[in-house]
């Protein structure tokens, strides 16, 4: 029982990070109708921006974090939208997807060239410590990671559902033409979606890097798992991305502990196939039809 509890909570903590990255996939999909294959690198980069502030500019951690957060929003939100997404027009389609793949390579190689290929330690924002529940040792970090991810997704859902700006963002995402006729500034709403995605990526980066270490290649596996989590949960649902992320995190840990460690990497793909076969719109997603 203690082992099960331990594995379950560790899985939820890992899954919460997948969920934050998966929500980003969902946001960009709704805003630009494109899959951002650089999403993993979007989670990798903010940690390095903090390290630049800390090690190169010799700022205290809090200032470096603010610097990293602000620069992430600027680079991964504003610049991404203006320089990568916007030139492809409202229906970026496949060229835009390929552009995000190129961006993923560019970000990885840039970090490797300018910061280094070796892993770097990253300061923990959460104090070390643990508490015991039924024989399981639960770390404060895991619990706070999970709480932070749940809080972020909950606030985001509330913002989208309960505020005027949030509803305008949803309207702009669902039908930009009609939204524009209704007087909604579609371009601005789209920009908000990109800025939110960048902010989520930065939060995920700050939470996960103290454990995973800062490394240029961190985004590779994270991006793939988050992408799968978004599909499993439902690409057009923020809550779906949360469910997908947590589900993968927990099942990955349970499989690795009780079934096999050797094939744990295959689990998300097996889940993906199962969901595509039985519920293509994802567990919480809505079916969409498009004329092509």
């Amino acid at each position: 029982m203690a082992q099960f509890l331990q594995v379950l909570l560790s899985g939820l903590a890992t899954g919460s990070i997948y969920a934050l990255a998966a929500v980003g996939f969902s946001l960009v999909w709704q805003a630009a109708q494109a899959v951002n294959f650089a999403q993993g690198e979007f989670v990798m980069l903010p940690a390095f921006l903090v390290l630049i502030g800390e090690h190169w500019l010799h700022w205290p951690l809090w200032a470096a974090l603010l610097f990293g957060f602000a620069l992430s929003i600027l680079l991964l939100g504003l610049a991404f939208k203006r320089l990568i997404v916007q030139p492809f027009g409202p229906d970026g389609g496949l060229p835009l997807v390929i552009a995000t793949m190129a961006l993923s390579i560019l970000l990885k190689e840039a970090v490797k060239t300018f910061y280094g290929a070796e892993a770097e330690p990253f300061p923990s924002l959460i104090p070390n410590g643990d508490f015991h529940i039924g024989g399981a040792v639960i770390s404060v970090r895991d619990v706070l990671n999970l709480a932070a991810a749940l809080a972020v997704v909950m606030l985001l859902t509330l913002f989208l559902d309960r505020t005027k700006t949030g509803r305008q963002m949803q309207a702009a995402a669902q039908n930009p033409g009609v939204a524009e006729i209704l007087g909604i500034d579609v371009a601005r709403m789209t920009l908000y979606a990109f800025l939110l995605n960048a902010a989520l990526a930065a939060v995920a980066s700050f939470l996960i890097t103290p454990v995973y270490l800062a490394k240029f290649s961190n985004g590779e596996s994270l991006g793939l798992v988050a992408f799968i989590a978004a599909i499993i949960g439902g690409f057009n649902r923020i809550r779906g991305a949360l469910v997908g992320g947590l589900l993968i995190g927990v099942l990955d840990n349970l499989t690795a502990t009780y079934v096999t460690l050797s094939y744990r990497a295959a689990l998300p793909l097996v889940l993906l196939i199962a969901v595509i076969l039985w519920r293509p719109q994802g567990l919480l997603g809505d079916a969409e039809a498009r004329i092509v």
Binding site: Q3, V7, S10, A13, T14, S217, A265
Partner: peptide, 16 residues
């Protein structure tokens, strides 16, 4: 795995 980032199930298995 080489490059593995999450060792929580590994440690849980060893611990118990």
């Amino acid at each position: 795995e080489q490059g593995q980032v999450d060792f929580s199930p590994d440690v849980a298995k060893i611990k118990h």
